[in-house]
Design a protein around this nucleic acid. Structure first.
Lengths: 143, 143
DNA sequence: TTTAGTAATGTTATAATGTTGCATTCGCTA
DNA sequence: TAGCGAATGCAACATTATAACATTACTAAA
C-alpha cells in the first residue's frame, strides 16, 4: 500500500506539472506513466503494450505517442542502450538524468547531477546528454 | 589520398592490436572496420550491409557479428541513441568513450576522458558507460 | 593422411522495435 | 452548430536485431 501511495502521489504531482505547463495528462498518458511507476524499472514499449491490451487492444503508435509525451515532459526517460523506458523519479523540470543500471537485478538508480565537467569540444553546444552506467549494484556485486 | 593513408594505417594498427591479443581480424571484420573508417561518422548496420552487397550478398548476421567483434575488441563503438556504429579513433585498449554528436552535420567527436567523477550509488560497480552528448558543433551552431 | 575439433561465416527465417498516414473522436469556441 | 485542433484508433509498413542450423576453413592430434 505504501507503494500505491507513492505511485498515486507521483501521478498527482505529474498532473500538477502538466497543468502548470499547459500540457494535458490524458487518461492514456496517465495510464502509461502509472505502468512505468508500478514497474519501478525500465519497461519495453511492447511490454507496456501488452499491459494495456486487456481492456482495449492498444496499437504501437498509442504507446509510442504516450512515451514521446512523457519523455518530452520530463516525466519519463528512455534508456537508450536497453530500448526501454522508465518513470523519472523526479516528476518535474527534469533536464536529463544520469542512470546507474544494475545488470544483475535490473534496478536503476537515477541521479540529477549538475552537468558533468568534461572535455567538451570547443564551441560544441550540448542539447541533451545520454549518460548510462551499466554494472552491478551493491547487493548484486556480492554474489 | 591522405585519408586513405590514415585509414590504412588504422587498419594496420588494428591488425597489430588483434594479433597481440590473440584475436583475428578476418577479412570480413577488416572490411567492416574499413567501411566505418571510410565513413568517418556513425553508420547504420543495414547501410554497412548495402555497402557489402556488391560482390557477395551479405546477410544481417554477418554484419552484426562483425560489429560485435569490433566493439568487443574496442575497435568500434555503438552509438546507442542512433542505433549506429563508428570506428574508434583510438584503435587500442579503448574502454569506452564519450561522444559529442552534432545533429547538424552528423560529425562525431570522441573523447577518452578518465572516469567522470559523479555521484555513483554506494557500492555500485560500473562495467561500462554510455555517454553521448547531442547538440551542435562549432560550425553548425552558427547557422 | 585422416579425423576430429573449433572458430568463422553463410543462409533462412523470424523476432523485436519503431514509424507513417489517414480516419475518427472529443472537447472547445466562435 | 459548424469548424477547429488535439488526441487517439487503426492498418500497414519500415527498421533493427537475433535464432537456429548448415557449411566452410583452418588447426591439431592420431
Amino acid at each position: 500500500m505504501t507503494q500505491n501511495l507513492t505511485i498515486n502521489s507521483a501521478l498527482t504531482q505529474a498532473e500538477k506539472v502538466c497543468t502548470r505547463r499547459g500540457l494535458s495528462l490524458t487518461p492514456m498518458r496517465r495510464r502509461v506513466l502509472e505502468l512505468l511507476l508500478t514497474a519501478g524499472a525500465p519497461v519495453k514499449a511492447y511490454d507496456l503494450l501488452s499491459s494495456l491490451k486487456p481492456g482495449g487492444g492498444a496499437q504501437p503508435p498509442t504507446v509510442y505517442r504516450a512515451l514521446d509525451f512523457l519523455t518530452a515532459a520530463g516525466l519519463a526517460h528512455k534508456v537508450e542502450a536497453l530500448n526501454a523506458y522508465m518513470a523519472c523519479v523526479r516528476g518535474d523540470e527534469c533536464g536529463g538524468a544520469e542512470l546507474y543500471i544494475c545488470e544483475g537485478c535490473g534496478a536503476v538508480t537515477e541521479r540529477h547531477t549538475s552537468p558533468v565537467p568534461t572535455e567538451t569540444p570547443s564551441g560544441f553546444q550540448v542539447d541533451r546528454s545520454v549518460i548510462e552506467h551499466y554494472g552491478r549494484c551493491a547487493q548484486c556485486a556480492q554474489s
